[in-house]
Design a protein around this nucleic acid. Structure first.
Lengths: 193, 193
DNA sequence: CCGATATTTCAGAAAATACTGAAACTTCAG
DNA sequence: CTGAAGTTTCAGTATTTTCTGAAATATCGG
């Protein structure tokens, strides 16, 4: 590995964290390298810097492309493929959350829908199904909320995040000013807990 | 494996998804089983139902305990350890997010803080550090927001999630009614893209 | 303290995943 | 069409992770 110390620290860390994030070491390192780089890199650059095999880099880049986490581009007068990460870090977050949802949530949501269609054949299954229903409703609430957020412009999104729970106070004010509006979202009458 | 079909489907699915969620197959299956069960199970129950070795179950339960995802309890007159998941599914979400943050975000945040203290030794390192600064600030914004949300009562949290982006409209109303209040959160004056 | 029951640890086997080098394939300039 | 440059695929190897059975450890009633 052939990198300035500061960059190497970060790249190694991403490699280590890879396993916790569901990618392998090389993929983590490639991503870290691209993220830090001021200009796009080609596969050979990455081989030189990380000291892993050409084919490993090729597979890693393919994996990152399947996550939409890197962008393929071309340098004029150069036939090789160059890769980079988006400059806008919020774009990265959006992509990451989207892809994780696709891989970690959606398949389960699909399965839950299927299983909830079936007839329970015993008290045990009936209870299990009720539990799955809870999980299903939760996932649906979260994904609906997420879809909403994903639609916001970044600036608005950041504004909302910075507000945090202060939003709550505003809701209180709103309730006092317009007691009924939006009350379809207020059905906390004993059903929960 | 010895389970009613409906339950088996779900348990197998959780086993498969396990690898995407950063746990192994057995741990995923044990968790699914406990989640669906109407009463606590002991290790031997789990062995019988899943058909895996006793030691594997023991390790799996230990792993789940380290995630705070299962609760150990005792049945009067029985020396064995019984395990269950919280009845409140929101409690499960809170724990899960907390633990994932602890494992997937916090170590990186720590590393970023350290690396940002160092002096860049070249233009390349300077650019890399600027990039890390972006990531650091993003992580900090997200974790601050998360800490805020974690503090909310479940009912309020659900209310907020259901509102989704409608919150935005309320912000607009608020701005018109109280143009200056809360404006410390409105610093989109050129610094952001 | 004893022995019965329950749980954990651990070394090695089995399985899954990552990595490599070589070969196959693709693209493009001449 | 040819061959040089670039990229991908793939079979085999290495590494890591998971899983098991056996042994060690812990707990508790008597």
């Amino acid at each position: 590995m052939n990198l300035p110390p500061l960059i190497q620290t970060f790249v190694l860390h991403f490699g280590e964290m890879g396993s916790r994030w569901g990618i392998n070491r090389t993929v983590g390192q490639i991503y870290a390298l691209l993220f830090l780089s001021s200009e796009p890199l080609n596969a050979e650059d990455i081989v030189d810097r990380l000291g892993v095999s050409r084919s490993n880099v090729s597979m890693g880049l393919k994996e990152l492309q399947s996550w939409n986490l890197v962008r393929l581009q071309h340098v004029p007068g150069d036939r090789r493929d160059y890769f980079s990460t988006p400059d806008d870090i919020w774009q990265i977050v959006r992509t990451l959350v989207e892809e994780r949802k696709k891989r970690e949530i959606d398949p389960t949501l699909t399965l839950l829908r299927e299983v909830l269609m079936q007839e329970p054949a015993s008290a045990e299954e009936r209870h299990a199904q009720a539990r799955m229903r809870e999980m299903h409703d939760l996932f649906e609430l979260l994904t609906d909320w997420y879809a909403d957020m994903q639609r916001l412009e970044t600036e608005r999104l950041v504004q909302l995040l910075k507000l945090g729970t202060k939003v709550q106070k505003i809701l209180d004010v709103k309730d006092r000013l317009f007691p009924t509006s939006g009350s379809k979202n207020r059905r906390g009458s004993g059903k929960d807990k």
